[in-house]
């Protein structure tokens, strides 16, 4: 476990000093602050608008940071050959990947906490309120980000940062529209009877299960059992993707 934590700490240190992270974080702060201006030019519902923009920004920039920083996680280690120094130590490859995963997870947690603080600094003076539902929504954003990170990690072992980034973004977009896609497919699709098609829909992660932004927006209570279910679902998905990444990485040779 000490090896995993050492790699996680190093990954955290690397990502937190990454210019991409700084740029995206700064941009996210600017976007949340700009929601304040939008609030001034909008008639009524000012707080709700600030919350809408704020929560969407927290999620979007979290995903962008996960993808931008995460796609280089393993690839950069191989390209820069720093991996020779790490894997020549008594470190199992799964420990290396787990360390990378947890390190980036820690970065995303810091980002989320920071953004939540900025969001509330803007939201509360706009007539906003402190609510458990908001925190539930943000917690599930973190769970979703951990799933995205696991997917990014898998692609990072397989492909270049550009391809990996593109595939991860596609995963995020499909994951959030899989329910809608299934509905349209059932109504108009020609393949709805195909077992493979149905299996594909059933197995593809449904990221909308982590989306409680509307509940926060309209103060609709979220039972903790739903939160726990979503957390369990996210943990299982993350584990599956990290295991897949490990299986790929175990076979990898370093030229």
């Amino acid at each position: 476990m000490r090896q995993v934590l050492a790699i996680a700490k190093n990954t955290f240190r690397e990502a937190i000093r990454d210019r991409i992270f700084h740029s995206l974080f700064a941009f996210a702060v600017v976007v949340v602050l700009s929601s304040l201006l939008l609030g001034y030019v909008t008639v009524g519902e000012r707080a709700r608008l600030v919350m809408n923009v704020g929560l969407a920004s927290i999620q979007l920039f979290g995903v962008l940071i996960a993808i931008a920083v995460g796609t280089g996680l393993v690839y950069k280690e191989m390209a820069k050959r720093t991996i020779f120094t790490l894997l020549s130590k008594p470190v199992a490859r799964y420990q290396f990947l787990l360390g990378k995963y947890l390190g980036l997870g820690a970065v995303l947690t810091v980002q989320l906490v920071g953004m939540t603080a900025v969001f509330h600094a803007v939201f509360l003076p706009s007539g906003g309120w402190v609510s458990v539902i908001t925190f539930q929504a943000i917690l599930l954003m973190l769970v979703e980000l951990m799933v995205i990170t696991a997917v990014v990690l898998l692609f990072s072992t397989l492909a270049s940062p550009f391809t990996g980034g593109l595939l991860s973004l596609l995963f995020f977009l499909i994951g959030h529209s899989i329910g809608e896609l299934q509905k349209y497919s059932d109504l108009y699709g020609k393949h709805t009877t195909s077992a493979l098609w149905k299996l594909g829909f059933a197995l593809f992660p449904d990221l909308e299960r982590f989306n409680f932004k509307e509940n926060a927006l309209y103060s609709i209570p979220v039972p903790w059992t739903h939160v726990a279910e979503a957390c369990l679902y996210g943990t299982l998905l993350s584990a599956a993707f990290v295991i897949a990444a490990t299986l790929v990485f175990e076979r990898r040779e370093f030229a």
Partner: peptide, 23 residues
């Protein structure tokens, strides 16, 4: 390794601490 590559944002002390932690 030949021409060892390290994380250039770390210091010699931090690299050695990382190596010690990996052991």
């Amino acid at each position: 390794p030949e021409q060892p590559y390290f994380y250039d944002y770390l210091t010699p002390r931090e690299i050695l601490e990382l190596a010690a932690a990996l052991f």
